[in-house]
Simulated assay, not measured.
Amino acid sequence: MSALESMLRRRSQSKVGQNAPDHAELLRFVEAAGTVADHSSMRPWRLIELRGDTRDRLGEALAQAQGGDIAKMVSKARRAPLLIAIVAIHRPSDKVPYWEQEAVASGVAHGLSLLLDEAGWGVFWRTGNQTRHEAVRSMHRLAANEQLLGWLYVGDAPPRQYEKPRKLVNPADHLTQL
């Protein structure tokens, strides 16, 4: 499948099954996603695998962050067998501003989601204000120069049934010329 076809076909899968790629398979996807454009090759990102009971600890941290019911938040954290936390790392640089470093981390996450989708896995990216809460930061053991951007939830993709065609952007509304 071409990159164009992959981009046009991709859909977030908000409900996924209970199987996920194993660590070895995930390493190969991360290797490919890590080829994203990266000014000065700073590698200002890292990923954290969350599986099994680690997702319960995430649910508890989310409950602290949102003041919600722990059981409900644990259930949300268990909506997929694999969660991949996307972490942007701010590396001191006179050449590469932090926003650009965060864009690289986001690019890795998007590339990884495309690779997982193309391999037949269901994927959705969850974000929100709770990524900035100290309980959630602490649970992920983030350093002071790290920022959690969200999680890719990964599991079996549901069978692809008839899908309404994705509403595409009008490229003329987003591409201008000088």
Results as ranks from 00 to 15, higher is better:
residue 105 A to I: 00
residue 160 R to C: 14
residue 154 V to C: 02
residue 71 A to H: 12
residue 157 A to P: 11
residue 118 E to K: 01
residue 153 Y to A: 12
residue 74 V to G: 07
residue 125 W to H: 01
residue 113 S to E: 06
residue 127 T to M: 03
residue 156 D to W: 12
residue 89 I to L: 05
residue 87 V to M: 10
residue 88 A to T: 06
residue 104 V to R: 02
residue 134 E to H: 02
residue 134 E to F: 03
residue 109 A to D: 01
residue 74 V to N: 08
residue 72 K to C: 04
residue 159 P to N: 13
residue 126 R to Y: 05
residue 126 R to A: 14
residue 162 Y to G: 15
residue 73 M to V: 02
residue 125 W to F: 08
residue 141 R to F: 05
residue 118 E to S: 09
residue 121 W to N: 01
residue 120 G to Q: 07
residue 86 I to G: 10
residue 137 R to T: 04
residue 107 G to K: 00
residue 133 H to A: 01
residue 79 R to H: 07
residue 132 R to L: 06
residue 85 A to R: 13
residue 80 A to R: 10
residue 84 I to G: 07
residue 147 Q to C: 09
residue 132 R to E: 09
residue 106 S to E: 01
residue 162 Y to M: 13
residue 82 L to D: 05
residue 148 L to R: 04
residue 142 L to G: 14
residue 155 G to H: 11
residue 150 G to W: 04
residue 114 L to K: 00
residue 108 V to C: 00
residue 147 Q to A: 15
residue 109 A to S: 08
residue 158 P to A: 13
residue 86 I to H: 13
residue 109 A to H: 02
residue 79 R to Y: 07
residue 91 R to E: 05
residue 122 G to Q: 01
residue 153 Y to R: 06
residue 146 E to C: 10
residue 83 L to V: 03
residue 89 I to T: 10
residue 70 I to S: 09
residue 106 S to D: 02
residue 103 A to E: 07
residue 158 P to N: 09
residue 130 Q to T: 07
residue 141 R to T: 08
residue 149 L to F: 03
residue 77 A to W: 06
residue 94 D to T: 15
residue 116 L to H: 02
residue 101 Q to W: 12
residue 135 A to P: 04
residue 112 L to W: 01
residue 128 G to L: 02
residue 70 I to P: 07
residue 92 P to N: 15
residue 92 P to H: 15
residue 99 W to E: 11
residue 143 A to I: 08
residue 137 R to D: 08
residue 100 E to L: 14
residue 77 A to G: 07
residue 132 R to A: 08
residue 114 L to E: 03
residue 115 L to E: 00
residue 120 G to L: 06
residue 132 R to M: 05
residue 92 P to C: 15
residue 112 L to M: 03
residue 96 V to T: 13
residue 93 S to P: 09
residue 134 E to R: 06
residue 124 F to I: 00
residue 78 R to T: 08
residue 139 M to R: 05
residue 117 D to T: 06
residue 147 Q to N: 12
residue 109 A to Q: 01
residue 155 G to D: 10
residue 89 I to M: 02
residue 73 M to A: 12
residue 95 K to H: 15
residue 150 G to R: 03
residue 152 L to S: 04
residue 76 K to I: 06
residue 124 F to G: 00
residue 97 P to R: 11
